[in-house]
């Protein structure tokens, strides 16, 4: 009985094995048909912002490469953590993309959210913005050195625009305080939107903004850029000196600036990630995107894989420790295993 039964069982298990092998064999096939339906793209910042503009500009080309629509929606709140949490809660199947900016690198130390980029895989680090220090054209301050000198003479008197902890003016201010030891009177704004009119109206003395937001005001002669916060001058405003060249002591912190990219949840099958990477890379490399980026005062990066991960890690280390040293963090970067940047 037993003997007679044995082969039959093994026949069944053979059938099972065959099935498993078949499914396994089919799996790559089904990955090849990815994407089988339209994708969802969650933009973690609001409509009209730089993250939104970059995302909406780069997506149509990626859609063409994928042969599927990417339905974009803005899901804002809690410095972008709401949108990130949403993508995190979706299955890791490559059908939900996260369009994010640099903010999640600081969620931990600022106590905003338990989410971080380690739980996601970069599809493409699209571009980075370059911060620029601007004053009104009729300001007495003509060079960055003059600004620093003035701030030394009257500590905490010069009115600086601020967009909240971790914002561009805050971090650049922390750099200036760490390197040059100066303090400003930071006037809080909800973003560049209200801060730039306040600068134009003379209600603050200077502001640090991304180039995109002030390029036209500089061109129109209403604002004057006194320094580009980067290692080299920008093609958009070639005459404005770069901070890293003027004062080499700032070089360890540079290049620094907001960045924008596309991520998927970690655990997404490798072939799917590869398909997405291959779709976004040419979209970012396209000449018309470069033109758009220049208009925005941003530098295209087009990084993916380990390169992208390394860039994000380096950025996180520099910024988290700057904020920590400025006593702006809730928790030490050490708690999150963020190493101090090497000098």
């Amino acid at each position: 009985m037993h003997g007679a039964r044995g082969p039959r069982w093994s026949g069944l298990s053979l059938a099972l094995i065959v099935t498993v092998v078949l499914i396994a064999g089919l799996a790559p096939v089904s990955a090849q048909v990815y994407p089988a339906r339209s994708l969802t793209g969650i933009i973690q910042w609001g409509a009209g912002g730089t993250t939104d503009r970059v995302s909406r500009r780069v997506t149509p080309a990626a859609e063409r490469a994928l042969g599927q629509r990417i339905v974009l929606s803005n899901m804002t709140g809690a410095t972008g953590a709401v949108g990130m949490q949403y993508v995190y809660d979706q299955p890791a199947d490559g059908y939900t993309l996260l369009y994010a900016a640099e903010n999640p690198t600081l969620y931990g130390v600022l106590g905003i959210s338990p989410r971080n980029f380690d739980e996601f895989e970069p599809v493409n680090l699209i571009a980075r913005s370059i911060p620029v220090v601007v004053v009104r054209s009729d300001s007495r301050i003509r060079y960055l050195t003059e600004l620093i000198h003035a701030a030394r003479q009257q500590p905490g008197q010069i009115k600086a625009g601020s967009t909240g902890i971790g914002g561009v003016p805050f971090v650049v201010g922390a750099m200036m305080s760490a390197v040059s030891g100066v303090r400003f009177n930071a006037i809080p704004f909800d973003g560049d939107g209200p801060a730039i009119p306040a600068l134009l109206g003379g209600h603050i003395d200077f502001h640090v903004s991304v180039l995109a937001a002030v390029a036209e005001h500089i061109r129109a002669g209403r604002l004057r850029a006194i320094a580009i916060v980067d290692n080299a001058p920008s093609d958009v405003v070639p005459t404005v000196p770069a901070l890293g060249q003027m004062m080499p002591e700032y070089r360890p912190y540079l290049p620094w600036g907001p960045f924008f990219g596309v991520w998927v949840k970690r655990g997404t099958p490798a072939p799917v990630v590869r398909r997405l990477v291959d779709a976004f890379r040419p979209a970012v490399a396209a000449p018309d995107f470069a033109e758009f980026a220049e208009l925005l005062g941003a530098t295209p990066m087009n990084l993916s894989g380990d390169e992208a991960v390394r860039w994000v890690k380096q950025w996180q280390s520099v910024t988290a420790w700057l904020l920590h040293d400025a006593k702006a963090t809730q928790k030490s970067p050490e708690e999150f295993g963020i190493p101090r940047p090497r000098r």
């Binding site: 409509a47 009209g48 912002g49 939104d52 503009r53 909406r56 500009r57 939107g193 730039i196 009119p197 134009l200 390029a215 036209e216 005001h217 061109r219 129109a220 209403r222 033109e291 758009f292 208009l295 925005l296």
Partner: peptide
Amino acid sequence: PMLTLGIPGDAVTAVLIGALFIHGLRPGPL
């Protein structure tokens, strides 16, 4: 302010300025 300075007067004009950007225009004082 959107047309004369490139500054949004409210949330919708902020989006409109973004749209002008995407269409390759330079909303600003000029």
